[in-house]
Lab assay of single mutants.
Amino acid sequence: VTLFVASYDYEARTEDDLSFHKGEKFQILNSSEGDWWEARSLTTGETGYIPSNYVAPV
């Protein structure tokens, strides 16, 4: 399981994006799509795309 933590807050801009807060942890589901990764929030359980430059490895 690949875990990352949010370095910043992010507000979703499309329905496919995932909003999150600094400190929130994610399981990365797919990182092969470039700068936007499909992730599941371990806080909310929601799945969506997050900007990879807003998160760091745990």
Rank of each mutant, 00 (worst) to 15 (best):
S31L: 10
S52F: 07
D9W: 04
T47H: 07
S32C: 13
I50C: 02
I28L: 06
G23M: 03
F26A: 00
E11C: 14
P57L: 08
G23W: 04
G48P: 00
V55K: 02
D16K: 15
S41N: 12
V55Q: 03
T47D: 04
E11A: 10
P57A: 09
E46M: 14
R13W: 08
S19W: 03
V55N: 02
E46R: 14
S52H: 08
T47S: 09
A6G: 04
S31I: 11
R40T: 11
S32E: 10
V58L: 12
F4H: 07
Y49L: 14
I50P: 01
G34A: 14
L29P: 04
G34F: 09
P51W: 07
Y49P: 01
H21A: 11
L18Q: 01
T14M: 11
T14D: 11
E46N: 11
E38L: 15
N30E: 07
F26G: 01
A56M: 14
K25E: 09
D35W: 09
G34D: 12
E38W: 15
Y10Q: 01
S7H: 13
Y49N: 08
E11G: 05
K22Q: 08
D35Q: 11
A39R: 00
V55Y: 03
A56D: 09
F4C: 09
F4G: 05
T43K: 12
F4K: 04
E46F: 10
W36L: 07
A12Y: 02
A6T: 04
Y8H: 10
D35V: 10
D16Y: 15
G48I: 03
D16V: 13
L29G: 03
E15G: 13
G34R: 12
A12M: 04
L29A: 05
P57N: 05
F20D: 01
T44E: 00
I28G: 01
T43L: 13
I50K: 00
D17H: 15
Y54D: 03
G34L: 11
S19C: 06
Q27W: 13
R40Q: 08
A12D: 02
F20P: 00
S7V: 15
K25T: 12
Y54N: 05
A39E: 00
E24C: 05
S32R: 10
E15P: 13
S31E: 08
G45L: 06
E38K: 12
G23Q: 01
A6L: 00
G23P: 00
E38A: 08
V1I: 12
